[in-house]
Design a protein around this nucleic acid. Structure first.
Length: 761
DNA sequence: GTTCTAGAAC
DNA sequence: GTTCTAGAAC
């Protein structure tokens, strides 16, 4: 009979599991073990510190020894002691790290009241905790408790917060036959009040009762029941229900709130929030690379990179508990004492790590094919499927193909299901060596070459991840310093670290809409994570959208087209124009920022801003300047007290090259904000005379396009005094009679009635 | 580019 | 309470 065959082969591969119970006295640890052992078909040993010394309390060392022997015997082990802090647990976790043993935690996180009353009631219990002492012991322990996290080295953590949860866990472990495994990940934890506060703050709803409920860590449990609750909570409030990472959203809040009551938990929260790369074993599946050799290389490369990835974590993932590569790597990593916080293995589907395993990974690696095409099978097909067509798109933007030993980092779109459901922000495609004659680039068992390529592949993969970690670590700083632009692009691609999420979620849709435009806009300057890319898509780009220096033209929003339309069809807008000549039209600025403010607009197609201007356009610049000057003089004729300045914005908001001719009174109800002021009164404003000089001397204009300029403090353009806000500034400039700075008086940058007294009659 | 408005700053 | 800014939306 088949059943018999199954049983006969069973004992050959015992699959022990080390279960570390975590709970206060009276939480029911011993009862849990007893119930499971009563019903289980697998051999269990319960290691209890209270009885290990011949029925009396023993030492931790005795427990470790006893557990180790039992595991080596192929038995599964319960560690029945409180294990409430991480340090206590760590040595027990290590027992399981060198073998195929799964290490589980069962957290009996029941109400303190219940634990106390049980402790008081019991008389013959091994722990012998009785009477009034019980309450204070339990309370002290619970105050110090640190809930376990996957990064401590656990494969699975089950949280029980009610007696019902305990019952379910007992059933799950009782039913665990000698050959069975339980899924990896975090299970059963409910979001607590603190996290709710975070969510509510995130949703900008202030009325949250802050009550000191029991403190939990940052993992939101991933059973369907509670996930549903969280999701519906989001749905009710805003359209962000699909983002699972709600604990992460406000990790900063959780930390802040936790200070004082349980600082240690706060630290754990941030650990679990670490950037994490989940990667499949490269080349060992379809490419048939030797597992033993691959495992060595993985562990080598992990060790090499573990200190290059900041607080990042690496997780080797495989689908099956029986995975040979997983157990090989796990054993080798333990041998080399690799920090289990930095690197661990996980059994699960790499496309569902958060939703079914509670494991948050912001980056996942794909064992890609050289064409970077979806399909095939295995991880590649799964990831392309899970990510949606957008990954294919985004991948094509980065590279056309990949040669063995290389990797390419692809940011995921915010609308990709992998992002919305799993919190994955980047996929790194990596191609390893192939030992399968049926596949391209067959190495014909040349393991010299093969190992070299596999090393390169992991190096490229981890370096890609390290770049993401570095970029994210820099982000808050970049933002704060207002360095603007570049960080914006990165922001919408890589949301991982806690409170960043908050900002981006709210503009998710918007960013998604403008994403393609943005990537074009910053194409020239963006760091591609320093990896080897096979083919850039750059060659394919329409050359007419490129600048002489190779950078991309900026993308113009619909509202930015008005001047362009006007320049293309001036006859349609005759009523709005002051002048139409051969290459130029002149018009009043629709929102003048001063008493007199006109635009000299070039009609030439293809010149949208200063960056487009080259030597050959000098004639046109001069013409624009002359026309501008003519209008300035005309206005001076009407009002000799005015002073004019002619110039361009380094980065205009409206398409089609236009020269501002603006009186220096800045007396206008349309001048409303810092940007308005600074765009005319910092280096962002490029004087026409200087632009013409630069074009004739260097063939291009110097752009002062740093966003910092537009958010600079407000200073009077005459006396340079600083002012706290626009109204105060405007009030000052309305009466400031100081002479203009010397710089503006030079080289004809300012145009006034005195400088041209007689010519205009 | 502007308008609108939440919420920060006062 | 009012003023002002900055970010979203267009």
């Amino acid at each position: 009979m088949e059943m018999d065959i199954g049983k006969a082969s069973g004992p050959k591969e015992p699959n022990p599991v080390l279960v570390i119970l975590v709970g206060a006295p009276g939480s029911g640890k011993s009862t849990f073990c007893e119930e499971v052992m009563r019903n289980s078909t697998r051999p269990w040993v319960r290691v209890c510190q209270d009885t290990i010394g011949n029925g009396k309390a023993g030492t931790k060392a005795q427990c470790l020894g006893s557990a180790d022997r039992a595991l080596k015997d192929g038995k599964s082990v319960f560690i029945d002691r409180c294990n409430l802090d991480r340090e206590q647990r760590s040595e027990f976790v290590k027992l399981g790290s060198g073998s195929q043993t799964d290490v589980h935690a069962i957290v009996l996180d029941l109400p303190a009241k219940l634990c106390i009353s049980r402790s008081v009631k019991r008389s013959g219990h091994e722990g012998n905790l009785q009477g009034g002492k019980a309450a204070s012991v339990v309370n002290t322990m619970l105050r110090k408790k640190e809930l376990p996290k996957l990064c401590e080295g656990f494969n699975r953590i089950t949280f029980c917060q009610s007696e019902n949860d305990v019952k379910e866990a007992v059933n799950a472990y009782s039913a665990l036959g000698p050959l069975d495994n339980l899924p990896h990940g975090c299970f059963g934890q409910k979001p607590d009040t603190k996290i709710q506060v975070g969510i509510m703050k995130f949703l900008k709803k202030a009325e949250v009762p802050i009550d000191a409920a029991s403190l939990n860590n940052g993992i939101i449990e991933s059973t369907s029941q509670t996930r549903g609750k969280i999701d519906s909570c989001f749905k009710d409030k805003e359209k962000v229900s699909s983002i699972p990472d709600n604990a992460n959203l406000e990790s900063k809040e959780v930390e802040d709130n936790a200070v004082g009551s349980a600082g240690s938990n706060a630290i754990q929260v941030s650990l679990e929030d670490s950037p994490t790369l989940a990667f499949p074993s490269i080349s060992t599946s379809d490419f048939q690379f030797n597992h033993e050799k691959a495992a060595d290389i993985i562990v080598d490369k992990v060790a090499e990179f573990s200190n290059k990835i900041g607080n990042g974590r690496l997780v080797l993932v495989d689908l099956s508990h029986k995975s040979k590569i997983l157990s090989l790597v796990k054993a080798k990593a333990a041998e080399r004492n690799i920090d289990t916080q930095k690197f661990f293995t996980h059994v699960g589907d790499i496309t569902h790590l958060y939703s079914t395993g509670g494991l948050r990974c912001n980056v996942i690696a794909n064992a890609a094919n050289w064409r970077l095409k979806p399909g095939g099978g295995g991880v590649n097909a799964a990831i392309f499927n899970a990510a949606g067509s957008e990954l294919e798109y985004a991948t094509k933007e980065k590279a056309k193909s990949l040669s063995p030993g290389n990797a390419v980092v692809v940011p995921l779109s915010l609308s990709s299901p992998l992002f919305t459901r799993e919190g994955v922000t980047h996929v790194i495609h990596v191609l390893g060596p192939n030992m399968n004659p049926q596949r391209p680039n067959f190495l014909n068992n040349d393991y010299n070459k093969g190992c070299k390529i596999l090393r390169e592949a992991y190096a490229a993969l981890f370096e890609g991840f390290a770049s993401i970690v570095r970029t994210q670590a820099e982000q808050p700083r970049v933002r704060n310093e207002n360095l603007g632009k570049q960080s914006m692009e990165l922001e919408d691609q890589s949301q991982w670290s806690g409170n960043h999420f908050t900002n981006t979620d709210q503009k998710t849709k918007r960013d998604a809409d403008h994403r393609s435009e943005k990537s074009k806009k910053y194409k020239g300057t963006q760091d591609d994570f320093g990896l080897t890319f096979m083919d850039s898509r750059d060659e394919k780009l329409d050359s007419e959208h490129r600048r002489p220096d190779g950078s991309m033209n900026k993308a113009w929003g619909s509202w930015a087209q008005a001047l362009h339309q006007l320049a293309m069809h001036p006859e349609k807008h005759k009523d709005d124009l002051l002048e139409i000549s051969e290459d130029i039209v002149v018009l009043n600025d629709a929102y003048p920022k001063a008493q007199k403010h006109v635009l000299v607009l070039l009609q030439t197609r293809g010149l949208d801003c200063l960056a487009d201007v080259q030597n050959e356009h000098l004639r046109l610049l001069k013409k624009m300047h002359d026309v501008g000057l003519k209008w300035a003089k005309k206005f001076l004729h009407e009002n000799a007290s005015l002073v004019f300045r002619l110039g361009y914005h380094s980065v205009p908001s409206m398409r089609q090259l236009h020269l501002h001719v603006i009186s220096q009174d800045f007396e206008s109800k349309h001048l409303k904000n810092k940007k308005h002021w600074n765009s005319f009164n910092t280096a962002f404003f490029r004087d026409s005379v200087d632009v013409m000089d630069e074009i004739s001397n260097h063939g291009k204009a110097t752009l002062k396009d740093d966003d910092k300029l537009l958010s600079m403090e407000l200073r009077c353009h005459r006396c340079r005094s600083a002012h706290p806000n626009i109204p105060r500034l405007k009030s000052h400039i309305s009466s400031c009679k100081a002479p203009f700075p010397a710089y503006l008086l030079e080289n004809g940058r300012l145009v006034n009635a005195v400088s041209e007294p007689q010519n205009n009659v």
